[in-house]
């Protein structure tokens, strides 16, 4: 098959132009590489057998050498362009991600995420303090003047929980009415909350690139909503119950928002204070950990969504709610604190 490209030895000998001779001698190899690359492009590298894969690697390196040589000896633009493009295509085929996705996921859970979290203490402090400050401010302002509630909490999310609602109604929202919340509705609601929360987390994370400020503001605002809503229940004498109701999924969910904010803060700080590096390099370097923080937030939101859909309305005792919520929180801390430490690690 490749023979149609190779000129007869006599013809090559007779050719006086060095670059033309160069091309005649090597063209069969290039054509073969082209065919292999095409095969790999359509069927993936797995579509090649052992000898073909070996040939691909060898021919790729030969083509690269040809390109380097051709740039020095040939002025034939068609040849230079062809080799450039051929090498580019072969490079794309040879340098594809070799690791399996499932393996990458396992490594991420065992090492990547916990290590990234332990490297990001300052951003985490920023994230959690944004939420805490917001919550405290919302709580205090609510007791100063209840009309703040309407400023902080949008109508769609409050679902009838507002200053002036009866204690009985508020209690119902905490302990649920089995007839009111059939399983289907609950699943749909959990699905809605999960995608809503994840979109907010993506937003908070991404905005971090603008010098971390928007992430902080958004997280602070989420804290305000949380504080004001909680204050509403405290005022009705349902503080303990509301705390338990919030804990079962909230420990995970609210921490996830804080961690997304921490990821954003990591990006923002990288852009604000690049140190000795260029801003571009600093962003790229810190981006790795920031993305891992976000993935952690996404994972926690998924878990929170499941807890919300399955357990929140079926587990009604406040003690059990507290136990599940904070137990889950303890699990996150333990995992992030202990996992992925190399033996004999530095303190």
């Amino acid at each position: 098959m490749t023979d149609q490209f190779s000129a007869s030895p006599n013809r090559i000998e007779a050719e006086l132009l060095r670059s033309a001779r160069f091309r005649m001698l090597r063209e069969p190899g290039w054509r073969k590489l082209e065919a292999l690359v095409k095969q790999a492009e359509t069927h993936g590298l797995a579509g090649l057998n052992y000898t073909e894969a070996k040939e691909l690697a060898a021919l790729y390196r030969q083509a690269m050498t040809s390109l380097a040589l051709a740039r020095d000896i040939s002025l034939d633009l068609a040849l230079l362009n062809y080799l450039d493009q051929l090498c580019a295509r072969a490079w794309l085929v040879v340098y594809v991600p070799q690791r399996s996705l499932s393996g990458a996921f396992g490594r991420l859970l065992r090492q990547g995420i916990p290590q990234a979290v332990r490297r990001s203490l300052l951003p985490l402090l920023i994230g959690f303090s944004a939420m805490m400050l917001g919550a405290i401010t919302g709580f205090v302002l609510f007791f100063r003047d209840q009309s703040w509630f309407y400023t902080f909490v949008p109508g769609g999310l409050s679902d009838g929980r507002a200053p002036g609602a009866s204690v009985g109604y508020l209690r119902d929202t905490l302990y649920g009415d089995a007839s009111l919340h059939s399983g289907d509705v609950l699943t749909a609601f959990a699905a809605y909350l999960f995608s809503h929360n994840t979109n907010i987390a993506i937003f908070i994370f991404g905005l971090g690139i603008f010098w971390a400020l928007p992430s902080f503001v958004l997280t602070f605002y989420n804290g305000l909503m949380l504080g004001a809503s909680f204050a509403l229940f405290v005022q009705a004498g349902l503080g303990y119950d509301a705390f338990a109701w919030l804990s079962i999924h909230g420990v995970t969910e609210i921490s996830a928002i804080c961690i997304a904010c921490a990821g954003g803060a990591r990006l923002g700080l990288a852009g604000l204070m690049p140190g000795q590096m260029s801003r571009r390099d600093s962003l790229r370097l810190h981006g790795r950990d920031a993305v891992k923080l976000f993935l952690l937030a996404g994972l926690m939101l998924l878990v929170a969504g499941v807890v919300e859909g399955v357990l929140r309305q079926s587990v009604t005792s406040p003690e059990a709610r507290l136990l599940i919520g904070w137990g889950l929180g303890g699990f996150w801390v333990l995992w992030l604190w202990r996992s992925g430490r190399t033996s004999g690690a530095k303190a």
Partner: peptide
Amino acid sequence: DVVAGTLVIVKPKAILLDDLAL
């Protein structure tokens, strides 16, 4: 792209034209 360290390129196509000198 800056954060990820990525670039977007045109997918290369390799076409070898005849050698004019021959």
